[in-house]
Design a protein around this nucleic acid. Structure first.
Lengths: 340, 340
DNA sequence: AACGAGTTTGAAAACGTTGTCAGACTTGGC
DNA sequence: GCCAAGTCTGACAACGTTTTCAAACTCGTT
């Protein structure tokens, strides 16, 4: 249903109107607004009163034009609906709170060309800083973009001027998850992979293999099946794995969303978790603690990554904030894994 | 972990540089960029070449200043992490695709004062249009804000100049969900409510009562328990309900997140869904289809609400797009409900 | 009473665009 | 060839700020 009426009006009060109203010059008004120079008490009062009465709101665009700064941070996310990315964005939002910077958010949908286009859009809008949440851009492209403004990039390591990166060793995380299963006595451990062109996904797989190798196990190709980091990929992967007839007592899913999809298939096909099969995810999304049963997973401190990125950006922009420390990856043992 | 190096550089190519490079005047350059007037072929080529060579990017701020339009839409969401809101935002993003408008997103966190402050921030940034996703602002406040620019508001009905609203009858949705349970033979149906100051939450409750009344049942206060629209509220509510010893064979949760929390408690306390108790949610969030078992719920076409809002906004801004129709609320029967 | 050294103030020049206006070219008809 | 009617084109004034710069005030000293 829809409702509404029409109308148009757009008064525009400028600093000149305020000046006239208060009987001073525009320069004085500007000085009072920005507090750059001392002005006499009576004029200050008059101007403040005039501002209030006229409901004057400085035009940020004119200001940006003059000062060359826009008080805007651009964020390139991949998917505005992904709980993974929104958790990070929430941290960025929090980290920027009170700094006066606003957020422009664009999505790249995991497509390098689209990402590049969106970033150009942000640069055209003269954002003061840029946060890039993973994605498929090449290091050189990012370094190139960093010539226009400082960049913080999460989930990957880039060494370039004017770029900071925030990342974890996903290899280590994959190792942690797999070793947990091994410690519980599992030996036949399946892996549902993420996108093969996603560096983190690959690293998690490497960690999985290292943990297996450490106890003298080779990774069995028939136990590795492809997912896509989304629920639906987990569904397909799990079905394929079960249909293949391969034997396994545990599954390591490359991320929580994949685990969720896999979990649904298991339940539907009568495989109990954790009684018949143990399941580990990766990320610790906010909802993962509410699954049935609550999911064992490797926690990425996503919110903190966001906060941290924001503070790095602020620092690069010359607005130092209290420095934060980033917590490490850690295994969160809940109820989807069990000793064999 | 962090990495990065330092550097600073910010060349700024203006239309003047381009004009000089191409041997024409700035007006000509502007005309070519905006295609407002025909210019001779040779100059056009020269200018285009110069633009390419200098990597000229017009300063949108200067342009905004001159034209009085910013090509920016502000979105006030409540919680950037809520799958409910991000689904709508995703629709808005989609609906705005290719229109040249960018999105500035701010969160109000369900607090009227914070919402008002964030909206003022957006207005200060001279957004051309505003989308307000539910929230606690009063109708008068919204009408007041609409004096600066057109507004679309979702999830509530407001009749005011320059405001369009997109909403559903949540009473009807609550009725649908409850009647479904009644049809399956349930009579003792518990309700986990949403925030009492949230209009939709209240309407859903009213629908619940209407459906009960229709078959001659009064709503039993001991079966109504308070939630907060989040998973955690569902957890508390479910625990309280079970502890109270009240008898029921079905639960209608005021939204999917609440249902998720309730589901977890049921599972943990050995109550099987749907064998012992049926469960219905509201919203049909993207993950609800992947729960174990998949959740029966009332589908709100959130993505479409976003698209629709975007097209209304575009229309109010004088950029008519193809008109869309909004699908209605509908019951999605999955596997958490069962005949008694 | 006159002199500086400070302090406040206002006029005016940016910032990078767009759009008006009028001038300088084209045409083509005679 | 000449003139009117079209085309293109360039100068320049906005848009609403901030920020020089220098003028106009203060005072406290002599």
């Amino acid at each position: 249903m829809v409702s509404g009426k029409e109308m148009a009006e757009r008064q525009t009060v400028t600093v000149l109107d305020v000046a006239r109203e208060a009987g001073v010059s525009v320069s004085t008004v500007s000085r009072i607004i920005n507090g750059t120079v001392k002005v006499s008490e009576d004029k200050r009062l008059a101007v403040e009163e005039a501002i209030r009465r006229l409901e004057f709101k400085p035009n940020l665009f004119a200001r940006s034009l003059k000062k060359g700064t826009t008080m805007t941070i651009g964020v390139l996310t991949q998917d505005i609906e992904s709980p993974f990315f929104t958790r990070v964005m929430s941290g960025i939002e929090d980290g920027l709170l009170g700094s006066g910077y606003a957020l422009i958010i664009v999505s790249g949908h995991w497509d390098a060309a689209e990402e590049a286009e969106r970033i150009r859009l942000l640069i055209a809008r003269r954002v003061d800083g840029l946060a890039i949440l993973t994605g498929h851009l090449s290091d050189t492209q990012i370094a190139e973009f960093a010539r226009s403004q400082p960049i913080v990039v999460t989930g990957r390591r880039i060494d370039a001027p004017n770029v900071r990166s925030v990342f974890f060793s996903h290899e280590e995380g994959g190792y942690l998850a797999t070793r947990h299963l091994i410690t519980l006595g599992h030996r036949k451990i399946a892996f549902i992979a993420g996108p093969p062109d996603h560096a983190d996904a690959v690293s998690r797989f490497e960690g999985y293999r290292r943990a297996l190798a450490e106890v003298g196990l080779a990774s069995d190709p028939s136990l590795v099946v492809q997912g896509d980091f989304y629920e639906n990929g987990g569904v397909f992967a799990m079905n394929r794995l079960l249909d293949s007839g391969a034997q396994f007592s545990a599954i390591f899913a490359a991320n929580d969303q994949t685990a969720l999809g896999a979990r649904m298939v298991l339940s539907r096909r009568g495989v109990r978790v954790p009684d018949d099969v143990s399941l580990v995810g990766f990320d610790d999304l906010p909802t993962s603690a509410y699954l049935t049963p609550p999911l064992t997973t490797v926690r990425q401190p996503l919110f903190e990554v966001g906060q941290f990125s924001a503070s790095l950006l602020l620092e690069m922009l010359g607005n130092p904030r209290k420095t934060l420390t980033l917590p490490p990856l850690e295994l969160v043992v809940r109820e989807t894994t069990r000793r064999i």
